[in-house]
């Protein structure tokens, strides 16, 4: 008697979201990137489809960041030139996308005007051909004034703009609605709030519901990674079982979280047994990325080119067909 392999059957799938727009589509990107579309739990190619490979975005900021010295050899001469930095991420380090964080808009870090922010976004768009992710400074009051201006300045480019939160989603969603961009919906490692936020955005516009990327809020390896992992797993299971308000692709700020851990920052001499600090931090970032890829992350936002290269290699391996 032939062995019958039991396979899980799901009745729904994650929605697909297209980022960027080419000239024919009204933008200036050299190509677009589609994320999502999974009809299975991550990498179970034998149970369903993963039509779009996860992508890696490298993170840049519009002011010189206070990052670890081990970034120096990669970025020192471009740190102060946001457009050149973006170009290097793509041309030299193979980033699928670039995530620009407009730190300078922070009233405590430069308080640059919405128009200055829009100028920076335009320069980055000119410098690279990949689709662009733009996130605010993190100071909601200021960011709410920035979103409409950059959304308008980049009209047609089909950006991924972040971030919307339950307490603060209207300004960014309106900006995205008006100029047809996609939005990152951030919830604090909480499946209920994640779903509620998606509903709130959908209530503003059903069209925007199809333009949401979920940020479940990362935590780094060693800092409750398993909580985020289980939230992502639950959201994906919900999506596959037909919960449309959880059926969006996911993004995570892996680099940001990994590089602020103790393990990435304790000097070598303080704990020699942990290994050399730079190397250790790179591995911390790469390992965090790999864990979240397993949980179903679609867009991995990273910092270190070597960590990104390791994650990319991991994606290559995970995307190999294992169907039978």
């Amino acid at each position: 008697m032939a062995l019958e392999i039991l396979k899980e059957k799901y009745r729904s799938k994650v929605s697909e979201v297209v980022l960027g727009a080419t000239r024919e589509e009204g933008g200036t990107r050299s190509h677009t990137i589609t994320v999502g579309g999974e009809s299975t739990m991550p990498y179970l190619h034998f149970e369903g489809e993963m039509p779009n490979r996860p992508v890696i975005a490298l993170e840049i900021t519009d002011i010189v960041p206070d990052w670890h010295p081990c970034f120096g050899e990669y970025y020192d001469e471009v740190f102060a030139d946001t457009a050149a930095w973006a170009k290097r991420c793509v041309d030299k380090y193979g980033a699928d996308l670039v995530q620009l964080r407009l730190l300078s808009a922070d009233p405590d870090l430069g308080d640059s005007s919405p128009e200055e922010c829009a100028e920076t976004v335009k320069k980055v768009l000119e410098a690279v051909g990949v689709p662009l992710i733009v996130v605010g400074s993190g100071k909601a009051e200021k960011d709410d004034r920035v979103y409409p201006v950059i959304a308008e300045a980049a009209a047609g480019e089909n950006l991924l703009l972040g971030v919307a939160e339950v307490e603060n989603y209207k300004a960014i969603t309106s900006a995205c609605m008006a100029h047809q961009h996609n939005v990152i919906a951030l919830s604090p490692i909480d499946i209920n709030i994640c779903k509620q936020l998606n509903i709130l955005i959908a209530e503003m516009s059903m069209a925007m519901a199809r333009r949401i990327i979920i940020d479940p809020c990362m935590s780094a390896l060693g800092y409750g990674i398993e909580y985020t992992y289980s939230i992502m797993e639950r959201a994906r299971l919900g999506a596959l079982q037909g919960d449309k308000m959880l059926a969006m692709p996911m993004i995570g700020n892996v680099g940001f979280e990994a590089w602020r851990t103790k393990e990435a920052n304790v000097p070598t001499e303080e704990n020699p047994g942990w290994g050399e600090r730079g190397e250790r931090a790179i591995l911390w970032e790469a390992t965090t990325a790999m864990a979240f890829l397993q949980a179903g992350l679609d867009i991995v936002v990273m910092r270190h080119p070597r960590a990104a290269a390791l994650a990319r290699q991991n994606i290559d391996e995970l995307m190999q067909d294992n169907s039978y």
Binding site: N192, K195, Q196, I199, A235, M245
Partner: peptide, 11 residues
């Protein structure tokens, strides 16, 4: 059966 959110009845 369904994942909770504040608007679960409407959903």
């Amino acid at each position: 059966i369904d994942i909770y959110c504040d608007s679960y009845v409407d959903v």
